[in-house]
Design a protein around this nucleic acid. Sequence first.
DNA 1: GTTCGACGGTTTACATGTAAGGTGGCCGTC
DNA 2: GACGGCCACCTTACATGTAAACCGTCGAAC
Lengths: 222, 222
Amino acid sequence: MVGVNEKTAARTRVADAVYERLREMIFTGELSPGARLSVPALAESLDVSRSPVRDAVLRLVQERLASEEPRRGAIVASVGLAELVSIYEIREVLEGLAARLAVENAGRKLVRALKEALDEHEAATRTADLAASTEADLRFHRLIREAAGNPEVIRLLDDVQTQVRLAMRTTTVTAGPRQAIDDHRAILTAIESGDAVAAEQAARAHIFRLRSVLLRQLEGGE
Amino acid sequence: MVGVNEKTAARTRVADAVYERLREMIFTGELSPGARLSVPALAESLDVSRSPVRDAVLRLVQERLASEEPRRGAIVASVGLAELVSIYEIREVLEGLAARLAVENAGRKLVRALKEALDEHEAATRTADLAASTEADLRFHRLIREAAGNPEVIRLLDDVQTQVRLAMRTTTVTAGPRQAIDDHRAILTAIESGDAVAAEQAARAHIFRLRSVLLRQLEGGE
DNA sequence: GTTCGACGGTTTACATGTAAGGTGGCCGTC
DNA sequence: GACGGCCACCTTACATGTAAACCGTCGAAC
């Protein structure tokens, strides 16, 4: 034995770090939609060589956080309202699926955790703590999809959320905090009662309402 | 097979060609699940440098045709029965969504094209022409999702199909040709009558039956 | 006979060189 | 002053160099 094995060592890929950094820059607005992702320029500003930057940019492109045209390089993607509506159509059926599957292998623990998230969501809303409210909201959804036991659903919903976050740089979608909590309560009730079909319906209805908000924005203002 | 036909002439990217070639090698079995994707070895055998091969392999990894462990390289992915079930759960709701959306902006042309595909499917089944039957089957589904008018749905269902093709190297899933045709007819009827909800239900039921076949395989003979 | 550790070969991951293509600016022309 | 072609710069895409990590093997010690 050569000594203690450091688990911290495993994660040191420069390309991964660059990828994370670029994601962060996109989500914080340091890189706006449309901004050019010049590999040499980024390499210099991040003080690494071009190779890991290239890998990271390719990864962003394939996750559609950036778009590229051959020989012209990549730019930060922008997600318009119409695309966001398309994404919410997908999110609707995927969240429905997650809720249905969650019922099928749900336990007491899930219900308890969901209740807790919902309570915190409500409390944060009462005190107008936006950050905590958002966190509890996201956690509620995350708990359900992780309980679904289908790794593909988790991955796809993570993808959806990534696109939504990007779109949020220019748009917001909320049906009002009270509506969200009521919707969540309906989902929780269905899960608690073990009614998979009702849970699917409730989850779909929740996303459907959010999508309706988007559609009104699409037709009305802007 | 998303959009290979860009009309711009000078799309001679070596990395793209390598990517296509590797995909082909995976689907034809030239590269079996588990096979190592050694960048230097592939570069030599394809007679290009390591860079485009590296790009292509990264792309495969990201599309989950290959899996990688850091510092250990990539191998051709294998899709087991359990994963295939997960994929079909997703396919169920996505095909349902596509059918619903297709109704919402369907025209006469769609119905006619679907009828044609269904007729050919039936004819090919009668003459036991497996290739033509499969082609007509795929075309039926493709027509619907392209009519959905939601590019994300198309992309996700293409992804699903890629995974299914990979899984098909070791598994087959069919509910029997008659069942498939009956299912398709039910979908067509619902679309023709303009009943979006019925179309969604019919499409979901179709995939649900295929998934049931998988589940029986999963429980029964290994 | 089994276990352990050193060694060679192979590969990854990062760095860097370079030809060809694209862009935008600049200048001359009308 | 507007327009069009030329040129210089920058970038992409491919090629290649290289340190360090990993794998399998082999041999020695117990």
